[in-house]
């Protein structure tokens, strides 16, 4: 299976410079459905699903490879290479902000600019650092994830996943955007919420924009400020939007901020 079908990569737009959109933990590339189209006139817009999410190839999910964020970053580099991305823009939501950061460290020529929407280099509080969560709270989340299986049924999964070329089949199903194998969801959640990329922030060479929501329980304002301080030359924009998903709740504000940056 090629990299492009493994990650269900979608390319649109008429520009030459690439803008790659990466979704965070929870749903799939549909997270960018109100934002990405705004850039199709000026960019080659690339969106994809992380392995295990959306309509990616579930057979490619290797618990060892995806035990930490580097596995996801390696995939992103492969996608960029497959599509010949050079000096492009990376837009990453939530955990994908750090995935994009890791990818840019591995392939420095791939992205000139990084847009981080609600980034957090570490979710768990640490000595002198406030990430917003304690270790036991993250364990509680992992346990709670087993209680929800939105639209997921093991019996139905093969039919849905095996028909990537027939999107209408999948779209019929409610909750399909956030449908994930509960086991994989837990695994991704663990990789996400136990990650620590604080030391990687200062290595960033690309221009960086941090989009911080005014009320965000997952990435609180002080975490955005931490990122801003750790990345000299980064820009911090605090959005009026609340919650963790301004790309859905306030797409216009997000589009405007990205446009101003690039």
């Amino acid at each position: 299976m090629s990299v492009l079908s493994r990650n269900h990569v979608q390319v649109s737009g008429s520009g030459t410079r690439a803008m790659v959109f990466a979704h965070g933990f929870g749903c799939d590339q549909n997270m960018w459905r109100f934002v990405a189209p705004a850039f199709e006139a000026d960019f080659r817009v690339i969106a994809f699903d992380h392995v295990g999410a959306g309509r990616s190839d579930l057979a490619a999910f290797d618990p060892g490879k995806y035990a930490n964020l580097q596995g996801y970053a390696d995939d992103l580099v492969e996608i960029g290479e497959a599509l010949g991305v050079h000096h492009g823009v990376f837009v990453g939501h939530s955990v994908s902000a750090m995935i994009g950061l890791l990818a840019s460290l591995k392939a420095p020529d791939m992205f000139d600019a990084l847009v981080m929407v609600g980034p957090s280099p570490r979710y768990i509080d640490d000595d002198g650092y406030r990430g917003g969560f304690s270790e036991s709270q993250i364990e509680e989340l992992l346990e709670f994830l087993a209680d929800n299986h939105l639209g997921w049924s093991a019996a139905m999964a093969p039919a849905i996943m095996g028909n990537a070329d027939r999107p209408e089949l999948a779209e019929e199903l409610t909750n399909s955007f956030c449908r994930t194998d509960p086991e994989i969801a837990r695994h991704f959640a663990r990789a996400t919420f136990t990650s620590d990329n604080r030391d990687d922030l200062r290595k960033v060479a690309a221009r960086t924009l941090i989009l911080q929501c005014s009320e965000d329980v997952i990435a609180p304002p002080e975490v955005g400020a931490f990122c801003h301080a750790a990345m000299p030359g980064s820009e911090l924009v605090t959005l009026k939007a609340t919650g963790h998903c301004p790309n859905l709740s306030a797409p216009d504000e997000v589009v405007a901020a990205i446009r101003a940056f690039v």
Binding site: G24, F25, G26, C27, N30, M31, R33, S94, F133, Q137, E140, L141, E143, F144, L145, D147, N148, L150, T174, N175, F177, C178, D216, V217, I218, G243, H244, C245, L248, S249
Partner: peptide
């Protein structure tokens, strides 16, 4: 919301509501 539900709300429930306008049968504490 409990901490698990709080994160789940942000990562799954809120996005789904924005995308499809409704969500049903979600477990919350």
């Amino acid at each position: 919301l409990s901490i698990g539900s709080r994160i789940y709300n942000e990562t799954h429930l809120a996005p789904l509501l924005r995308m499809q306008g409704h969500v049903s049968e979600v477990a919350l504490d």
